[in-house]
């Protein structure tokens, strides 16, 4: 698969389109980073995004929740356009609602250092969804149990390992009950021995049918968990297909040389 254009319906699960991007452009000053990206994310799908450093993977995934505002193209959520403001307008959904429903996990965790693990996870439900504290804490404890950190609920983030921090960050994002989860190189800042525990959590989310976009350099993991793989290169989607087509048996030459670096 070498074309960047069509969205491969056959490789995607049958779920409705949750996020759709058409002709996405992003420039910083005169530097064109995204040069026309098309993408449709279906419910229940796990989309892995791979590609060399600087190819625009972060920029692309950050456009999906409007952390970066695109300079061109269209983005829609469940068929609704995105208003260019925090508050929505009529049919158009605002950044606030979009981000409530599309969660994000960062490479450097970005936990709130002045809050305990539990408070980190309840922050969204309380401050944004307006849930009562007890209800938020019940949700949070449940999620912390899922990421095996219930015993750390009263610890502060600076007492946790990188792997534990990232699992808290995942629980924090899940506490909003998002319909999509965006993960941008969430294991890249971790010591190698801590990568596994985080990937395990993400794997279990995938098994539960969570819709996700995962930017990663963990090729074996991507091949395992992804229902579809996107190869980005130079600000465009250079190849797209099943894990089999993209990672296990790549036809594209650029893709082959990129992947060769991971078979040490």
């Amino acid at each position: 698969m070498t074309t960047s254009k069509p969205v491969r319906q056959e490789a995607a699960p049958a779920g409705e389109v949750v996020l759709e991007v058409r002709g996405l452009l992003k420039s910083y000053g005169r530097h064109e980073v995204l040069k026309g990206v098309d993408l449709a994310l279906h419910r229940g799908e796990v989309l892995a995004v791979i590609g060399p450093s600087g190819s625009g993977k972060s920029t692309m995934i950050r456009c999906l929740n409007m952390m970066e505002v695109p300079t061109g193209g269209t983005l829609s959520f469940l068929g609704r356009p995105i208003a260019p403001s925090f508050k929505g307008k009529g049919e158009a959904i605002g950044f606030g609602e979009l981000r409530r429903r599309v969660g994000m996990v960062f490479q450097h965790f970005n936990l709130f250092p002045h809050k305990t693990v539990l408070q980190n996870v309840t922050e969204g439900p309380i401050a944004v969804l307006g849930l009562p504290r007890q209800e938020a804490e019940a949700i949070a404890m449940d999620l912390l149990g899922r990421v095996s950190l219930a015993d750390k609920c009263n610890a502060y983030p600076n007492h946790l390992s990188g792997g534990q921090k990232q699992r808290v960050a995942i629980a924090r994002a899940l506490a909003m009950k998002p319909e999509v989860l965006l993960l941008d190189e969430v294991t890249s800042a971790l010591d190698p021995e801590l990568v596994g525990e985080v990937l395990k959590v993400i794997g279990s989310l995938a098994a539960d049918g969570m819709t996700m976009v995962i930017v990663t350099h963990e090729m074996a993991f991507a091949a395992d968990v992804a229902s579809r793989v996107l190869f980005m290169d130079g600000g465009v989607v250079a190849a797209e297909g099943s894990a089999e087509e993209i990672i296990r048996a790549p036809a594209n030459e650029r893709l082959q040389s990129f992947l060769a670096r991971f078979h040490a």
Partner: peptide, 22 residues
């Protein structure tokens, strides 16, 4: 750090709320 603003924004907080709470 910028990451703190981003983490708050990613939860759907307005920048005023993020300023106040985070």
């Amino acid at each position: 750090e910028r990451g703190q603003h981003e983490a708050a924004a990613a939860l759907g907080m307005s920048s005023a709320k993020a300023m106040w709470r985070i």
